[in-house]
Amino acid sequence: MSSVREQIFQAVFAKIVAVRDALEWATAVRNPSEPLGDDQLNALFMQDGGLLDPRGLSGGVQEDEVEFSIGLLVREKESAGLGKEALVDAGFVAVMNALLDPSDIQLGGLVEMIEARGGSDPVYGRAKEGARVIGGLVMDFSARFLTREGDASQVGP
């Protein structure tokens, strides 16, 4: 069985795929290893993060926290009335609403809660080739969770 950390990442990425589908964007990718091409925009991407220092151990249950980032890269479509700022904001709202949804902030019982931890300023500019205008943003999150001591694959308690 996968570690609780990996189970959390899979659940978060499933939410990002649902956001992509709801926004009708082209791509959702986890830990991209290649630059995203123009044909892959508008895109959401997830970067796995590391574990923060454990908060404690009590009764055989360890409290942990894992970080991850969600980014978006959009291509302006002025002919359709979709400016870069509006596209970045739509992605921001959809990601925040999906990950901080009070009805599933515990990811089906995997985590105690997900928290927004900040992120980058939005960036806008011209693509390296051509006249396309693009925008981007990265949002940082953490998720607190419990594991059984000696079993990283089991949610505690």
Rank of each mutant, 00 (worst) to 15 (best):
Q47L: 10
G130W: 02
M46T: 04
A94W: 00
G125D: 06
M113G: 12
R132T: 06
L52D: 12
G60I: 01
G83H: 15
R126C: 08
Q106R: 15
R75F: 04
V93P: 00
M96S: 04
T27A: 03
V88N: 00
S58V: 07
P35L: 15
E76C: 08
T27F: 02
Q62T: 13
A80I: 05
K77T: 12
R5N: 11
L52A: 15
S153P: 13
E34S: 13
D21I: 01
G156Y: 03
S153E: 10
F45E: 04
K84M: 09
D64P: 00
E65N: 09
D89M: 08
I70Y: 07
M96N: 05
P122M: 09
K128Y: 12
D89I: 00
S103D: 14
Y124W: 09
I105F: 06
V61H: 02
S142Y: 01
F92V: 06
P102L: 04
E34G: 07
D64C: 14
L87I: 06
L87Q: 14
L146E: 03
D104A: 06
G108Y: 04
R148V: 12
S33I: 15
G37K: 12
L73C: 12
R55Y: 03
A80G: 08
V138S: 14
R144P: 00
V155K: 05
A80T: 13
L23D: 01
V93W: 00
D104K: 08
S2M: 12
D121P: 04
I8Q: 04
T147M: 03
L100R: 02
A18S: 12
E63Y: 03
A127N: 11
V123F: 13
G150V: 02
W25H: 03
G130I: 01
D48H: 08
L41E: 07
E115H: 05
D38M: 10
E24D: 11
G60M: 04
R126H: 15
Q47N: 15
P122R: 08
A22K: 02
V123M: 12
P122E: 10
A98R: 00
R20W: 01
V19T: 01
V29T: 10
Q106Y: 13
V66I: 11
L52V: 09
L44G: 02
I114L: 10
N31C: 12
G81H: 02
R5K: 14
N42S: 15
L137V: 02
D53L: 08
F13N: 05
G130Y: 01
V93Y: 00
G136Q: 10
G60W: 05
A94P: 00
R132L: 13
A152E: 14
